[in-house]
Design a binder for these strands. Structure first.
Lengths: 267, 267
DNA sequence: TTGTTCCGTATATTTTTTATACGTATACTT
DNA sequence: AAGTATACGTATAAAAAATATACGGAACAA
């Protein structure tokens, strides 16, 4: 019996339960019932299913707390993103202000998204009216979009630029949404996107100006024990990575030691 | 018949379907079957349920495309976060590198999280060994945690600091996880957290140094048409907001016009 | 002691989902 | 032109999931 044998809905519930144990340390049937709108009886089922998956360091019922308590050596059955973790730790009250920053504020035009998605799935080129943030000028150009990209904040896309003769990252908001969006088939296959299919391996260390206890905090925050933190990322996304992690800012807590780039295996 | 009448699992499926129509512009039964592991028959059910919810500008079947196509005036039945949108637009291939930045790299010690969660739910104070990033010094102090906070990247927490005599935001990674974490009941009730219960209304405009076409791109990107973008946020989170949106950086595309703070209603 | 709130288990019933079959329309291949 | 494949639709019986309900135990508070 593994997670994969379960239906999607129950798998989601067991994953939630797993996060409760990992991050809260405790879980009750009511947690499941409230979050997923299932009955207490079904939640009891899910607890049984979860416990049958855990062979070592399983959570145990604590009659005093009236709750299951995770073992101190609890091992999660699946990793969780910070957003997942927050979803478990946040004690949101009814319709008050949230305890998280507003995330949905970035905007994407549904029509632009649809046109791009279409061009990607049909492998077509389209004419977009694009405003450069460097020069500030707005001009039409033909591009062949290949993938959407997410930098954690907003959505970008990768496309072959016929104007530049190379692949570039584009920002949908810089496309004029009022345009007609001419579409055309590719007359020649697109060239290979080297930057996309290359992996940059980036080694980082706590910034040299930090004290040793500050440096160990940085290691803790980014989850590495040795000297260096190793990150693997598509070379085409390295710019977004640097910006998002604030590596080039004056107060940066991490600094790059070296970057190695190799052509990725497979896709 | 509304979304709320449905079970959680089916509601999730209809929301996914809604995002397909909104952002991709098309949807097939196979999309649902693949994403949620349901049968084609059940996916057909879901389509019927979805279409019964949509009264105006409903998607229609296109026999040529062999897919449902959203009406050009499609109105989503629920808002979606950028992460949700990306989840629909990304054409992830098998186990290749993702097209999104690594998000799970920030780390949180499960034991520290558990201790904090406990103190919050039981309303206790705890002794933490905390490293200041300003002074770099590490010292024990008593705090009474009240809520977890999410800045979009990592998780922080709000707590009353007995050392400072005021509420502050803390970063879990700066707590020494090896500590024993002494716990104690509150001897007096905590004071009112004014900054937490106040709303800052922030008005932003495109940075003055931008050209007018660049400024309209910025308006498009942040989804406002008028002169000013208005953001409401807990006053206690304003620091994170500024940092996350890069408002104080040299190249900032938005600048603050004014900030008004009022005591929040209710919670 | 009594009442409450957690936990557990078990059963019958209801709801959801699947498996399957059959029909229609479009597009592609032979 | 005929055949094949793949979308869509509907319908029904069977299987699986979830609910309602009942009963019992442990801890705790009034």
């Amino acid at each position: 019996m593994t997670l994969d044998d379960l239906k999607h809905a129950q798998r989601q519930r067991l994953l939630f339960l797993d996060r409760c144990f990992t991050w809260r340390g405790v879980a009750r049937r009511r947690d499941l019932a409230d979050r997923f709108g299932i009955s207490i009886a079904q939640a009891a089922n899910d607890f049984r299913a979860y416990l049958s998956l855990i062979t070592q360091n399983a959570p145990e019922y604590d009659a005093h707390l009236k709750a299951y308590v995770a073992s101190p050596d609890h091992q999660p059955i699946a990793p969780s993103s910070m957003l997942d973790v927050f979803g478990v730790l946040d004690t949101a009250s009814d319709d008050a202000l949230p305890a998280a920053l507003p995330r949905a504020k970035r905007w994407l035009d549904p029509h632009v998204a649809t046109v791009l998605h279409d061009a990607i799935s049909k492998q077509q080129k389209i004419r977009i009216v694009y405003t450069s943030m460097n020069s500030g000028e707005t001009a039409p150009q033909w591009v062949a979009p290949t993938r959407f990209i997410f930098d954690g904040e907003s959505i970008h896309f990768r496309a072959y630029s016929y104007k530049r003769g190379e692949y570039r990252n584009f920002h949908p908001a810089r496309i004029n949404p009022e345009d007609e969006f001419q579409i055309d088939e590719l007359d020649t296959p697109l060239p290979f996107d080297m930057e996309w299919h290359s992996v940059s391996t980036i080694w980082l260390r706590p910034s040299a100006r930090l004290t040793s206890s500050q440096a160990s905090v940085v290691r803790r925050e980014f989850g590495f024990n040795g000297d260096l933190l190793r990150i693997e990322i598509r070379q085409a996304l390295e710019f977004y990575f640097d910006r998002r992690w604030g590596l080039n800012e004056p107060g940066a807590r991490l600094e790059k030691v070296k970057t190695e780039t190799t052509l990725s295996q497979g896709n």
